[in-house]
Computed example of a mutant assay.
Amino acid sequence: MKKAGEVPQEELATGSRADRSTRDRVARSILDHGPSTVADLAKRLGLTQAAVRRHLDALLAEDVVQAREQRVYGARTRGRPAKVFALTDCGRDAFDQSYDQLAVDALDWIARTVGDEAVARFARERIEAQAGAYRAAVEAADPRERTQALAAALSADGYAATARSAPGQQQGEQLCQHHCPVAHVAEKYPQLCEAETQFFSELLGTHVQRLATIAHGDGVCTTYIPRGEPAPRGEAAPHGEPAPPGEPPQNHAHPSASTAGRNPA
């Protein structure tokens, strides 16, 4: 039992990991119980109100919670309404959601009732619907900087993308996406990866090679983009066949099997 004036054990912990754990508990309590006052949270979590305020300040700065006046039903009492803290949309997204499963269920239904080609068509139209910003960024860039421009546009959409020279003897670049918002869905439906790969090819005017994907279990989605004279705008070059490690993919007149959604290694 806590003695009078004794600081709760949670507040004795130091370091960012302990702070993060306690902030997660504060956010979880709001998720479970709805908008809460500082006093409510302190009582439920066994913290002092000062400690709760400190963690709420951090959550406010991270846009995880928002402060608002407590709604009063019936006759309002005298005095200033209490302030309550509620989760923002961003804060709710930090917890487990069923959106991935909902998307998989929807695509399962499309595949069963209409067919796999309908899934592929959906994937193509989905990437086309969000392609405007990518096209604008690439078309405004110097031809030698198109991959970097595409990486910046992808990062603005949450893909945490980078562009770098390909390692070894490869004469090209690698577009790396360190985050994929649809990775769990693409694990079952690689058509999403395939449509994205084809779009990159059309956008950059050259064949591209998908080397790895997060959906397949790789750490990063990696796309090889060869250097050279780009194809005419809006015209995708033929896809290349996988090449041995250290050698650039070879360009052939016939399209190769896509490696999107799986690791060719």
Results as ranks from 00 to 15, higher is better:
Met1Pro: 09
Ala4Glu: 15
Thr14Pro: 03
Gly15Leu: 07
Asp19Ile: 10
Arg20Cys: 02
Thr22Ser: 05
Asp24Gln: 10
Arg25Ser: 12
His33Ile: 00
Val38His: 01
Ala51Lys: 08
Arg54Gln: 14
Asp57Lys: 10
Asp63Pro: 00
Asp63Phe: 13
Gln66Val: 10
Arg76Tyr: 05
Thr77Asn: 11
Phe85Met: 08
Ala86Glu: 15
Cys90Phe: 10
Gly91Tyr: 09
Asp96Ser: 11
Gln97Tyr: 11
Tyr99His: 13
Leu102Tyr: 11
Leu102Ala: 09
Asp108Ala: 09
Thr113Ser: 14
Glu117Asp: 14
Ala118Gly: 11
Val119Lys: 03
Arg121Lys: 07
Glu128Ala: 13
Ala129Asn: 04
Ala131Glu: 15
Gly132Met: 06
Ala137Arg: 06
Val138Thr: 02
Ala140Thr: 07
Glu145Gln: 14
Ala149Cys: 14
Asp157Phe: 01
Asp157Ser: 05
Tyr159Gly: 00
Ala163Met: 11
Ala166Tyr: 01
Gln171Val: 10
Gly172Leu: 06
Glu173Arg: 05
Glu173Gly: 00
Gln177Ile: 05
His179Lys: 11
Pro181Arg: 04
Val182Gly: 04
His184Met: 03
Glu187Trp: 04
Pro190Arg: 08
Gln191Met: 13
Cys193Ala: 06
Glu194Phe: 00
Ala195Arg: 02
Gln198Trp: 06
Glu202Arg: 15
Glu202Thr: 15
Leu204Arg: 09
Thr213Gly: 02
Ala215Pro: 11
Tyr224Arg: 10
Glu229Gln: 12
Pro232Val: 10
Gly234Val: 04
Glu235Ile: 15
Pro242Asp: 13
Pro242Cys: 08
Pro244Cys: 00
Glu247Met: 09
Ala253Ser: 14
Pro255Lys: 04
Pro255Phe: 04
Ser256Lys: 02
Ala257Ser: 14
Ala257Pro: 06
Gly261Tyr: 01
Arg262Pro: 01
